[in-house]
Amino acid sequence: MTARIGVVTFPGSLDDRDALRAVRLAGAEPVPLWHRDKDLRQVDAVVLPGGFSYGDYLRAGAISRFAPVMDTVVEQARSGMPVLGICNGFQVLTETHLLPGAMLRNNHLHFICRDQKLRVENAGTAWTADYAAGQDIHIPLKNIDGRYTADERTLDELEAAGRVVFRYLDGNPNGSLRDIAGIANEAGNVVGLMPHPEHAVEALVGTGRTDGLAFFTSILKRLVHA
């Protein structure tokens, strides 16, 4: 038995195919989901992929939040379904308020595309159990609206509860507060991050390492043993 993991395609999504492929390489069953369908096709978890959904008009993620599929994603996420938001998907998760804070234009105003070193700060979430806490990983980063922002009280709460899941190492690429690259909700089933694990699942491409694969094996183990 394996798990069904859905990947939503919005108009303007770019990395939905890579995410579906990563799900398959991890051994789970990839299920394409469509932004206009409320039906999640009985998936056990959902990935919101990277890209520029709705052209990033208004704010990144602001319009996708109102897509019919998101009504169901938000409802199910609140009752415990695992959701991973990558890059634009992370922006959608902050706009829906499933995750606190907001994403802003990079402090240097440039689009950035590079291999990024991260530290896994929390290996206890649904999406990070196959990492070790404190482990360093290299995965690609590519965005212009990647500056994570929240008020001081929210940042303190996130830190105290171990909800900062990833931190940038060797230089902050975008001005994110406290070098935050990714966070989780209180229950740990919803995780969002700016860098792209789905681009680091095969040695041939990406960083030449497979440091991103553990996201997808983590969730598969969680679902199959649940």
Binding site: L58, R59, A62, F66, T94, E95, P100, G101, A102, L104, T149, A150
Partner: peptide
Amino acid sequence: TFLANTVI
């Protein structure tokens, strides 16, 4: 709820 994100 839409035109502004009141977090920022």
